[in-house]
Design a protein around this nucleic acid. Structure first.
Lengths: 148, 148
DNA sequence: GTACATAGTGAAGTAGCTTCACTATATTTG
DNA sequence: CAAATATAGTGAAGCTACTTCACTATGTAC
């Protein structure tokens, strides 16, 4: 066994559940939630974002972004700065502690990957990625179908 | 690329996010949530369960199980029956519609697996499972460490 | 049979999220 | 350029999934 589709499929779901639980736990120790971490990740990548774009990227309502940024700002991880061209909009940028958190996230991700998967053959990892991509292709396809 | 640990690791997280989203969506169309589906799955497997054991299996508070069973009962998927030996406890069992829902879940799972992964070589699926197991081993280990 | 543990539930509260209504500013258009 | 319309953000209110705490009813142990 373990070469059958259903086994791999079930394994993927188990992985999904445990991984997000583990992630949640690691983030909690740093005083973060998945959502807040996502904001930090997006800001680290983009440099600065308007709340509207954050809502788009996060797939949540603009109203909720307000709250997210509120608490992130209270925690000193981001700051609201005036948008250079649009006085309605708010530029959200990482503070230095926020940027350090982003670096920690990256470091942690790479370290975990190396620790957990470092000694597996590249062929296994490549096969894993192939199967994962196949599943991803189908779930994102389904998503688009529902959107139209 | 794609043979590197970090790529597989990131892929696993993307898989986790998309898969639970896809799951949530499929369940919504049947009027279920992940939690309610989990209850149905557990009941289908065990035959009957006391709410206390459900709370244990779900990893949530007994109080929350009360609410979960309330709505599931309103929807006609489960029923509360007196526990044969303990008058404090409640035996929760699936109704016929509940059992049918459980069968639908199983069918849907198998069909999806076949559709999505059916034509991939068994060696890829086996490699996928190996990598998934490696990750699972680490996250559950971490969980136990934190527990002690 | 008194003391203590356990199963379930009401009441109240938290976190994450939504919609709706409103203000302030931008953009379009006649 | 003035009027109409669209857009960025936020307050208010509300929903869902969950928790803890206090309480009742029952079971178990000494």
């Amino acid at each position: 066994m373990d070469g059958k589709p259903i086994d791999a499929f079930d394994k993927a779901f188990e992985l999904a559940a445990r991984l997000s639980e583990a992630m949640r736990q690691a983030l909690t120790e740093r005083g973060l939630t998945e959502r807040r971490a996502e904001v930090i990740y997006l800001l680290a990548r983009a440099g600065a974002l308007v709340q509207r774009d954050l809502a788009e990227a996060l797939g949540c309502s603009p109203r909720h972004v307000t709250g997210l940024i509120d608490t992130l700002q209270q925690d000193g991880l981001v700051k609201r700065t005036p948008h250079p061209a649009d006085r309605r909009a708010v530029h959200v940028v990482l503070t230095e502690p926020g940027a350090e958190t982003a670096r920690w996230m990256t470091r942690h991700r790479h370290d975990s990957a190396r620790t957990i998967l470092g000694d597996l053959p590249a062929t296994d990892l490549a096969a894993f990625t192939r199967v994962a991509d196949r599943i991803l292709g189908h779930v994102t396809q389904a998503k688009r179908e529902n959107r139209s």
